[in-house]
Design a protein around this nucleic acid. Structure first.
Lengths: 363, 363
DNA sequence: CTGAAAGCGCTTACAG
DNA sequence: CTGAAAGCGCTTACAG
């Protein structure tokens, strides 16, 4: 009933009558280089199978430098409590791509500080080094830690556009600006001339890029009636009614939160899309497909790309001063977004365009 | 611009003017045992901080130490594509508990075999050994691999009742059987005497335990009209109608899938719960709270418990032949389920109890 | 109180 | 064609 010792290369060597080094060679297919005879190789492989040999990863990575581990660090929880998990799609892509390269994922749970937020160095030591590199997600600003991480030469990439003064951060983002062109084209060709842009309070690059892209694309196509920055709570039936009364025939909602709020507001104001107003959401709802035509942010593809970018950075292609960083540069290109579907885009509702319409009564 | 070499213990030792072994002692808090003076310890800690030292996990675990890594292995994908993520709540609990103990999580993504399924040994080497132990989730039968894992003495625990011939597998489960008592009591005291048990095709222990617990609890309380094993597709309006016609005044749905199907069937048959029929689901819907009164399976608590159990097993308290395995035994106790809420449990609909009721027309 | 040394299981030059 | 040896970065007896 004694626990059998786990076989190692020297056990195989003894059984096959060769040296441990020879076993290693055969295992790593470097046998050809050293011209070890087929018969010897066969004997070694048989011994291997007989003993059920499995390499010891710790020893391999100690010796070889790589652990085959990709770190994932989030400044918020990795597995959120709510089912409409913002990270899920990114993680899907990360996992998928990691599988393809035979890598395992380390979720840094140990990095939580006493106050509940997460920190890379908060616990005293950077456990991240455990991995060959890391993918970082999350909104929290933590420039000092990022700078230090870069300073130490630890390979990492961000998902989402991040900038820290004095540090060149490799990141994966989507082409939010370019995605606005088909949005504008779809609305313009449906006949819309006055459009409201419903924006969330500014938080990051993605939003800025969307808005700028939208305004650029809209130039000459239609009038951006207003760029209205609102919290979801302020997207009410009254607000919708006022927009239509002001002549808007279409609303572009920047986030899926705003889109959800807009759906409720439309319902309670008694409007339907696209009959009364055309609506496009600029972000897809992670919980499901969402109520409106929307631009799907390619989160899964971004997750995959992040792994690829990280692998390139780990391979030392990340030095910005190097001339041969072509691979990294290509991988850091924004990921393309597909054009929106058109369920809630239709012709402008005629009456809404007139200030004398019955809708103004609600004001 | 050269990447700085990662500091190791000998670098600290040189800086602090001690030997590398002393650094190791201080790091592992074995300094007290050897009475290393406070001042020396302080010097070492300062040097450590200055260099940003982080232990090399591979070396630690090669040497026999702990890596501080808890493995998570699933025979299916870790991050499912669908938002109604069955694993999410387990992972929540696992992450939460790991955070508390300063452990990181390794998601074994590399363990996927060419055919898409996952295997522990399929890729040639057992990458799991990287971690101090592992929590295994998922339904797929893979007895050989489990037996081998146990054979090698690798510490692991299952979430969900698992049995493999000849191997004592530590697992965490919920007290499904005991949870049936309040279910039966709630129905009986509402006046129900004839209840249909809607069961999924038998797949595991949880189901068996629920059914046996239910039947035991029901004895003397009411008649279990039928135990009906159905696929969700077969839960139709006709089926519901037939149940009521046969005299059932309440339906107990075993899984959340069945509960969802039952909701649709009730809708299309024009019935509402609890006016026409009382309904209790024996499992909670991971996607949300679900349409019916239900027993909440304490998945998060089970995840937490799995970490605790694993930690005990790692500490060698897992030897079933040892007398001191009290801790493991206590942790392997089924986790308690709270009693169901009562939204869709009401008094029996009178007419349904009569075979001459208009409902039978549908037959 | 602290250091020198062995050894965990591998890979990879380097000798024969 | 194959083996002896060094060394990856640690921990842990064992000597002083």
């Amino acid at each position: 009933m004694n626990r059998p010792r786990i076989p190692r290369q020297s056990d195989i060597a003894r059984l096959a009558g060769v040296s441990q080094a020879t076993v290693s060679m055969v295992l790593n297919d470097r046998a050809g280089a050293n011209r070890i005879p087929e018969t010897t190789q066969l004997r070694i492989r048989e011994a291997m199978a007989e003993l059920g040999y499995v390499p010891n990863i710790a020893a391999q990575s100690l010796r070889g430098g790589r652990s085959g581990l990709i770190g994932v660090h989030t400044f918020e929880r990795v597995f959120p409590t709510a089912p409409d998990d913002y990270y899920r799609e990114f993680l899907n892509g990360i996992e998928e791509r990691a599988v393809e390269s035979g890598l395992d994922l380390v979720l840094f749970a140990s990095t939580r500080k006493p106050d509940g937020t997460r920190s890379i160095y908060g616990s005293g030591s950077n456990r991240m080094r455990l991995a060959d590199g890391a993918i970082i997600l999350g909104f929290e600003k933590n420039d000092d830690e990022i700078a230090r991480l870069a300073d130490e030469g630890f390979p990492f990439v961000f998902i989402g556009h991040r900038e820290v003064a004095g540090v060149a951060i490799p990141f994966v983002t989507a082409d939010y600006a370019a995605a606005m062109t088909p949005v504008v084209r779809m609305l313009a060709s449906a006949g819309h001339r006055r459009v409201t842009y419903l924006a969330a309070p500014l938080r990051g690059f993605a939003q800025r890029e969307r808005l700028e892209g939208f305004e650029t694309a809209a130039t000459g196509a239609f009038e951006v009636l207003s760029v209205d920055v609102r919290d979801t709570a302020d997207v009410t039936a009254d607000w919708v009614t006022a927009q239509l009364a002001a002549g808007a025939t279409a609303i572009v909602a920047e986030t899926f939160d705003l889109a959800r709020a807009l759906r409720l507001a439309l319902d309670s104001a008694g409007f339907t899309a696209p009959a009364d107003v055309s609506v496009i959401s600029l972000d897809s709802d992670p919980r499901g497909e969402g109520p409106f035509s929307h631009v799907r942010v390619p989160r899964r593809a971004m997750g995959r790309r992040a792994v690829e970018l990280l692998l390139a950075v780990i391979d030392g292609e990340g030095d910005p001063s190097a001339s041969g960083s072509g691979s990294v540069r290509a991988l850091a290109e924004p990921v393309h977004c597909d054009p929106p579907t058109s369920e809630t885009v239709g012709a402008p509702a005629r009456q809404a365009a007139s200030a004398a319409s019955p809708l103004t009564i609600a004001l």
